[in-house]
Simulated scan of single mutants.
Amino acid sequence: MLRWIKEHKIFTAAVSIVIILAVIISVSYFRGNGFFGKAVNSAYTAASEPASDVTGGIKSGIKGIFGFRSIMRENEELKDEVEALKREITEIRLSERELAELRELANALNYTSVAESQSYVTGKIVLTDSSNYFNTFTINVGTESGISENAVVVSGNGLVGRVSETGNGYSKVTAVIDDNINISFQVEKNMSILGVVSGDGNGKIEGYTFDGDSGIVEGDVLITTGIGMYPEGIEIGNVTAVDYNSDTQLMSIKAEPAVNFKSLRKVMVLI
């Protein structure tokens, strides 16, 4: 063996150097110091970073997907809660409006003629004509409730009109603002002033007094006389204009109806 080593000195020296370097590198690597250790560690770290980034990205992506689904679920739950609250608010508002309407109808009982009426029923407007005002409209009560044609219709604010047609479960009402209806009136402050009014077809009332020197003025309140089908004392409207007609020698008037037909929802029918 020694003879072979002596004969191959160069080869033996080279192998010895390689073995020594391998030992140095191994020791440096495990201890983490030294030139070779640092070089090896740097190479390992550089090779590990891409794999670590990929793994971290996958984990983050998975978390993001589940987080997005959670947010979407929470949004849907919040939407359902908001819709439920909106429905509750709407129901409360409807209840308040219905209560206000019933209170308004109760005001109609303050009219002596209405209070003395033998009976009445309340109805809800379910259909109107095609005009901007309620010249004619339909309510949801009829003959089954004792309503007949020409029954007087009122609200808490005043005279609404009369029933022009009725049947089982419905009644058609012609309002005081319709030009086919005529009502005798008296002035509340001076009941000796008499006249007749009818609708002008445009949501207002117009008419005349029997006496050209009656003294009626703007702001006067018109009420029913009790002559004809309408009980006495129900408010018809307020005078907005007065003009003497020299041709007829009568005092022409224009008036705003006591009832706001645009907001009218419920009425009372005298039977």
Score class of each variant (00 low, 15 high):
3 R>Y: 10
5 I>F: 14
5 I>L: 15
6 K>W: 12
7 E>R: 12
14 A>Y: 11
14 A>N: 07
18 V>Q: 08
24 I>A: 07
28 S>N: 09
29 Y>P: 00
34 G>A: 05
35 F>I: 04
39 A>Q: 11
43 A>N: 07
44 Y>M: 04
49 E>F: 07
53 D>H: 11
55 T>D: 10
55 T>Q: 11
56 G>Y: 04
58 I>W: 04
61 G>D: 02
65 I>A: 12
69 R>T: 08
70 S>K: 15
77 E>R: 13
79 K>Y: 12
80 D>E: 14
81 E>M: 09
81 E>T: 06
82 V>W: 04
84 A>F: 10
87 R>W: 03
91 E>K: 02
92 I>V: 14
94 L>M: 13
96 E>M: 14
96 E>V: 15
99 L>K: 13
101 E>C: 03
105 L>F: 04
105 L>V: 07
107 N>M: 08
109 L>H: 03
112 T>E: 09
114 V>I: 15
114 V>L: 03
115 A>R: 15
118 Q>I: 10
120 Y>P: 01
121 V>F: 09
121 V>H: 11
123 G>N: 09
123 G>W: 08
124 K>W: 04
126 V>G: 03
127 L>N: 11
129 D>M: 05
132 N>R: 08
134 F>M: 10
137 F>R: 08
141 V>Q: 11
141 V>N: 05
143 T>F: 03
148 S>M: 13
149 E>M: 09
150 N>Y: 14
150 N>A: 12
151 A>F: 13
153 V>Q: 04
155 S>I: 12
156 G>K: 07
157 N>S: 14
159 L>K: 09
160 V>M: 03
171 S>C: 09
175 A>N: 11
176 V>E: 08
179 D>M: 08
184 S>P: 01
185 F>I: 08
185 F>H: 02
189 K>V: 10
190 N>D: 15
194 L>S: 04
194 L>W: 01
197 V>T: 12
198 S>W: 12
198 S>N: 14
198 S>C: 06
199 G>K: 07
202 N>V: 05
206 E>R: 04
208 Y>M: 05
209 T>P: 01
210 F>Y: 14
211 D>Q: 11
212 G>L: 06
213 D>M: 11
216 I>W: 01
219 G>F: 01
220 D>P: 00
226 G>D: 01
227 I>S: 14
227 I>P: 00
228 G>V: 13
230 Y>V: 13
231 P>A: 01
231 P>W: 03
241 A>R: 01
241 A>K: 01
241 A>P: 00
245 N>D: 15
255 A>Y: 06
256 E>S: 13
258 A>W: 09
258 A>E: 10
258 A>L: 06
259 V>P: 09
260 N>K: 13
261 F>S: 10
264 L>N: 06
265 R>Q: 12
266 K>A: 06
269 V>Y: 01
271 I>Q: 14
271 I>Y: 07
